[in-house]
Design a binder for these strands. Structure first.
Lengths: 338, 338
DNA sequence: CTGAAAGCGCTTACAG
DNA sequence: CTGAAAGCGCTTACAG
């Protein structure tokens, strides 16, 4: 293919060693004469030399790559985080490989295996559902990785979360203060700790407002194909309870689909309903100007994840120790409207 | 680190060759005894062997990786294409690395260099602006790659586009048939062939409808920071021309930002204005139920790009030829509303 | 049926 | 100041 170290060495009648020293910037340190350095650099330039990073990695045992696994690459929350992670990782001289598990545990396992086979130095994962076997293996083999958005209670891993319970509490509390009494909660993936905490925050807010939890206002949407499943759930809530006057959505994707539902049925959701949602996406404020939202700190989530991962990697290398698992819980910014 | 071929070979008193044959599934072909095969597989399992793909790639000269470079990873169009590309690439036994150029030519150059240094087998790129030096180099060195969404007229590259002029024509034609006469065009990045074709379609539609092009209805938004720039452009159009009764947006991101503009000013854009836009995003139909859209065939764009790339790679390998550059122009699905 | 050997393109002690 | 040699973990002619 392209030019290799050997080509340069042969052209100049030098050893690969010397060429390698120069090109990796360790020439002065190794006391290579300025003249030789010149010759090597010039020749490399002329032959348009580009080092083969695979070969280098094979040697050093470090690929300089971080892998990022997302449940969905087109979800606005994850793609925003991806952007932050990419920037941050680059800042530290690493490069990022992104791929998507499509929320399928088996795919996630495959991706983890693939990344490891490609020798990434560390992994950042927003896990699909429960801890799959590959994640467990990461822990067992103490491979450097950080989990965000979702946590495994059973596994001791680095973890970046948001204050799910607190934010949910604050949002729903605000709805009750606005005077809404029959507030439905629309949620999904209830087995995830993250989602459970949001539902719990809703429950506590009702309780503190002296409102009894009403089973008929609980809407749980099957995650796979939630677009298709949501209308049925909402239909059922309306059928069972005509007095519903508010909605708390535990995640933006459900709120957005709900807007479509109301729109399709000609209902003006902005009129007379109290609305609240975890995570804001760009056009929510246009779709539902009165909705209270808890803004996820996407920038900090991305940056914290990278920070934790690199810090972990650094400590392993320098001290040889495996750092204890750390959990960071970031605050959402609460935006109350109207 | 982990287990290597050598470990297995030593454990079993076999050569690395034999182990390699077995583990790469070429044992029968090489006539390795069933007994030996068993022993090797068992041992690999027991030691939890995972091949180092870097080492393999260094040997074979093929990494099995395709690189995808997007202007923005959080834009819904690109992230949808990314998803399709990832699926399609995987289907063919490759894996995908995604990264974002953030619409910065220098970043794009860096990404291309990085991908090549990592020995990707091929590249799919939605280029930033004009042909950067690294893209020119891809052509010069005849590295396998496909460009989509945007094209370089000067460079002979594989290319997947949509029928920009035709779709734009049809959308604007429909607006004039709906009775709108003073239709503004809101566009950006006018130097891109893609955008120019859309503006041209607008112009031809007006002409065919017997409407003279009016400079004061032309709104060009500086791309960098378009969110901040759009309001000024719209303000100017309204200031210069009170009779404006329609908008053709050459891309979804401008339409979305315009919704925010109208919303902030308390204008109901769905009442009295003719609207049309290239590319549909999920909640457009809720935000502007009456807007005509040309749906980009994201699935086909992704799949065609992969198909062209793999086909090119295949032909190089088998025939040793460099296949001539191919351009595919895909049709948008036109959705007329109301 | 199995193995010794060379090589992919680098890096890095070690030696002089 | 520079080089010969071994090695990273694989694959693959070639030989027997």
């Amino acid at each position: 293919m392209g030019t290799s170290l050997k080509d340069i060495a042969e052209t100049l009648n030098l050893s690969k060693t010397t060429v390698s020293w120069v090109l990796s910037g360790r020439a002065d340190e190794k006391g290579i004469s300025a003249a030789t350095q010149q010759r090597v650099s010039r020749c490399a330039q002329r032959l348009n030399y580009r080092p083969n990073l695979l070969a280098r990695s094979l040697n050093t045992g470090e690929s300089g790559m971080i892998g990022l696994i997302l449940p969905s690459i087109s979800d606005s929350f994850y793609s925003q985080v991806a952007r932050e992670v990419e920037m941050e990782v680059e800042e530290h001289g690493y490069s990022l490989m992104i791929c998507s598990s499509e929320s399928e545990p088996e795919r996630e396992n495959r991706m983890i295996r693939l990344f490891r086979a490609k020798q990434v130095d560390g992994l950042i994962i927003a896990p699909t559902v429960r801890s799959g076997e590959e994640i467990r293996r990461l822990v067992d083999e103490s491979f450097p990785f950080v989990v965000f958005d979702r946590r495994f209670p059973k596994l001791d891993t680095h973890c970046v979360l948001i204050d799910n319970e607190r934010s949910s509490y604050a949002l729903v509390r605000r709805l009750t203060e606005d005077g809404f009494r029959r507030i439905a909660v629309i949620t999904t993936n209830p087995h995830l700790e993250t989602m459970d905490a949001r539902r719990a925050g809703y429950g506590r807010a009702l309780a503190d407002s002296g409102i009894a939890f009403d089973e008929s206002l609980y809407g749980e949407v099957e995650f796979a194909g939630y677009e298709r499943n949501l209308p049925g759930v909402l239909d059922r809530i309306f059928a069972r309870d005509e007095g519903v006057d508010g909605f708390f959505f535990t995640t933006h994707i459900l709120a957005l689909e709900a807007f479509r539902y109301f729109h399709d049925r000609g209902v003006d959701i902005n009129d007379g309903y109290g609305l609240a949602c975890i995570h804001e996406v760009p056009f929510m404020s246009v779709l539902a100007p009165g909705m209270h939202v808890a803004r996820m700190p996407v920038g900090r989530i991305g940056r914290e994840s990278v920070r934790m991962l690199l810090e972990d990697m650094r400590r392993r290398k320098s001290a040889g120790e495996v750092p204890p698992a750390e959990t960071v819980e970031l605050e959402c910014e609460l935006c109350f409207r109207g």
